[in-house]
Amino acid sequence: MSQQGGGHYYVPAPSTWPITGSIALLFMGFGAALSVNRIPLGYGLLATGFAILVYMLFGWFSTVARESESGKFNKQVDKSFRWGMSWFIFTEVMFFGAFFGALYYMRMHSVPDLADLDNKILWPDFTAEWPTAGPGITEKFMPMGPWGLPAFNTLLLLTSGVTVTWAHWALKLNKRGQLKLGLFLTFALGFLFVGLQAYEYGHAYSEMNLKLTTGAYGASFFMLTGFHGFHVTVGSIMLFVIWCRVLKGHFSPENHFGFEGVAWYWHFVDVVWLGLFIFVYWLI
């Protein structure tokens, strides 16, 4: 580990947090695969993986916070953090871009192709209408409309984007009270969004017969909204950690990238949801 000073770049000691996060993702990956196939062990693995992930997040955040508050980070380290966060968000853009691309290809190419004359012998009753579960799936379901709870959730996320920006300006002006309130409102709205989405899923399964197994529409709906809900959950946890740091007096108007990085992530989550609301809920 090199020491800060004289323009030296701080290099942290070897850490166990990356391998801890990898173990969490391993449990979550196997747990999700088994849960989708209704194997009881999957639910336990999924919960274990999520618990390890939360433990890793809090532990790693605490380590970085101690390093930051002890004065180990200079402008060069700050620049590295900014580039690192920018590339991370870029990978997330590509991640959701792949799912949006799959949805586009399904709606504009796969479904029409399956209803053309060449396939009429196989599926004579199938029509190229969206939403659809696909040919050969006769179980009835109701699509999730945009108004009601989805529109309210959209309002929640848009409001949270305003409150985190409000908190950011408060930090720049050193208004600590406004900063604390803005951050609290932001992660509270995020957790409320996740709770309402869970309620929406329960309603979809019990009242609309809309499930992950409901062919093309069900799979695309739950994969896109589910991964977004996971990102909202992670973002809310990150905001809660930043709020706890603010309560301890961390960050200053001149040095607060920890806050900015989470704010970038949160705005990205908001933008993704707008895309989901338009292309998954509205244009059905």
Results as ranks from 00 to 15, higher is better:
Leu114Trp: 11
Met28Thr: 01
Leu181Val: 15
Leu189Asn: 14
Pro112His: 02
Gly31Tyr: 00
Pro112Ala: 01
Ala128Ser: 04
Phe152Thr: 06
Lys140Phe: 07
Asn153Ser: 12
Phe141Lys: 02
Ile52Pro: 01
Tyr55Asp: 08
Leu103Gln: 14
Tyr9Trp: 15
Ala33Pro: 02
His109Asn: 10
Glu129Ala: 13
Ala102Ser: 08
Ile242Gln: 00
Gly148Val: 12
Met56Val: 10
Trp60His: 11
Ser86Met: 10
Pro12Gly: 06
Gly6Gln: 06
Phe257Arg: 04
Ser160Ile: 02
Leu210Met: 07
Ser236His: 11
Thr213Pro: 09
Ile284Ser: 05
Pro112Tyr: 01
Phe81Ile: 10
Phe191Lys: 02
Phe184Val: 13
Gly258Ile: 04
Val269Thr: 15
Gly7Asn: 14
Trp273Asp: 12
Thr165Ile: 09
Leu276Pro: 11
Tyr199Val: 12
Thr233Trp: 06
Val54Glu: 03
Gly195Thr: 12
Glu92Gly: 06
Pro14Asn: 07
Gly29Glu: 00
Gln3Arg: 10
Thr214Met: 04
Asp270Gln: 11
Asn174Lys: 14
Gly84Tyr: 05
Ser86Glu: 04
Lys120Ile: 11
Ala98Tyr: 03
Thr132Asp: 03
Leu179Trp: 12
Trp60Arg: 11
Phe257Cys: 09
Val271Leu: 14
Gly31Thr: 00
Trp266His: 02
Ala219Ile: 13
Phe193Val: 03
Pro40Leu: 03
Met208Pro: 00
Phe61Gln: 07
His8Ser: 14
Leu212Cys: 07
Leu156Ser: 08
Ile23Val: 08
Val272Trp: 12
Arg38Ile: 05
